[in-house]
Amino acid sequence: MKYIKYVGHIINEPGPRGIIDVDRTITRVQEGWNDYNLDLRLDLANHSPTGFCWGYGGSGPAQTALAILADYFGDDETALRLYQQFKSMVIAALPMDQDFELTGEQINNAILAIHAIVAENIVQNQSRNMV
């Protein structure tokens, strides 16, 4: 796969008590294709109609995880199956107050790690059932 990355950007504006985080966008950047901003994909799951967020394990990060995976894989069912674990493993660990870049390789590695955890859980459950 050609180089691909998702760029999370925080739009700040000056407010009466300092800088205000007014919006957050996620842009897909891929060699050979036009950049575009991701849709929230509220049609798949309505966690955060007010927008994307990252850096903790809440609803905004869940929306971010879902939107990224739905775009990356181009398959809604795949995104719905994996996004909660992807949120916990990747999106929650991003710096909350900073922009981020997430490469296709990082996403692939996270998905492979999720598969490994799921497989390990299956083996452990089977072992418990045999005792």
């Binding site: 796969m1 891929q30 294709w33 990356y72 894989f73 181009g74 398959d75 795949t78 994996l82 296709g104 390789e105 692939n108 590695n109 998905i111 492979l112 598969h115």
Partner: peptide, 24 residues
Amino acid sequence: MNAVCARCTKPMGSNQHKVGRYTY
């Protein structure tokens, strides 16, 4: 790079097939 199939998300071997923006 540890590429994964865009449909099943399992690791891909050396044979990778690009269809539009996605690789299977």
